[in-house]
């Protein structure tokens, strides 16, 4: 592992991305909208009462946190991996004394910094207008950190191994879109997971998608605690291990059968 080279790559990518701020701000704005819509829908629905124990202000807090976490864990770089493979850009990356995942990681980290420059001020502004209600227990705040870290790693690696399927199929985009739809449904965007009806709720608890987005938010808001919390963290770690394994397998097999196109 060449970490100094990796760091240099991250810095270079970040600096070059900052030049395209307005483009990335626009992207980040677009990604904020779906959770924002459901923020308005649920907080209007709650009105003066409560739904599933959440008040109007509770929904606002939940969705504002979800906007932040969603942005932090969204691995948008996975969309470009397929193109890099398809158009032969992988050639240059393979010749470097660095694993190509560093290229993706560096855009990932560079992107996060640029997006946050936009998303944090906007979320703060929305919080000032919409008045969320949030009480954080100290334990919940502590558990939030590993939950968030694993959520990011899981979402990144999961998307990465799916994107690597482009080694075989010319287009893996549809799979990534599928993943986005499932995330919308099962990861607490359309409604907090605890409000989902029976069967879907079970699916959401077992499948990996919730652990990529809404799980850290639920932890921070104290919606999951005690045994449920440990169970959730264990499931999250399990999915992460599986994602890592799948990535390693797909990468090895894929690179072996890769042959570039174009000149």
């Amino acid at each position: 592992m060449n970490f100094r080279g990796g760091w240099a790559l991250i810095r270079a990518t970040w600096l070059s991305w900052l030049q395209y701020r307005s483009f990335f701000f626009l992207l980040a704005f677009g990604w904020m909208i779906p959770p924002l819509i459901y923020l308005f829908v649920w907080s209007t629905a709650a009105g003066e009462g409560t739904i599933g124990g959440l008040t109007r202000g509770g929904f606002v807090a939940y969705y504002l946190l979800l906007i932040l976490v969603n942005q932090l864990t969204y691995a948008q770089t996975n969309w470009t991996v397929g193109d890099v493979i398809r158009y032969g850009g992988m050639n240059t990356q393979l010749l470097r004394p660095l694993a190509p995942i560093f290229d993706t990681l560096s855009s990932e980290i560079a992107g996060k910094v640029v997006y946050m420059l936009f998303v944090i001020p906007v979320t703060v502004l929305l919080a000032l207008i919409l008045r969320p209600e949030l009480h954080i227990a100290p334990g919940a705040g502590l558990a939030f950190i590993p939950a968030l870290g694993m959520a990011w790693a899981l979402r990144f690696l999961w998307g990465y191994w799916l994107a690597l399927l482009a080694f075989w199929s010319a287009r893996a985009d549809a799979l990534l879109a599928l993943q986005d739809t499932l995330t919308f449904l099962l990861a607490g965007q359309v409604a907090p997971v605890m409000l989902l009806p029976g069967g879907i709720r079970t699916a959401a608890t077992v499948l990996p998608f919730r652990y990529m987005v809404s799980f850290p938010v639920e932890v921070l808001m104290g919606q999951v605690h005690g045994a449920e919390l440990w169970q959730g963290l264990a499931l999250q770690a399990g999915w992460l291990a599986l994602a890592l394994l799948l990535f390693a397998l797909v990468w090895r097999a894929g690179v072996r059968q890769y042959s570039a196109v174009g000149g």
């Binding site: 549809a174 499932l182 449904l185 409604a191």
Partner: peptide, 25 residues
């Protein structure tokens, strides 16, 4: 071609998600 079938699946799933969102609400 394989992209086609996944697109079909995705269209159905997206529709399901949209309708389900309303049913949940």
């Amino acid at each position: 071609r394989s992209n086609f079938w996944i697109s079909v699946l995705n269209a159905l799933l997206e529709l399901g998600a949209g309708v389900l969102a309303l049913v949940i609400l």
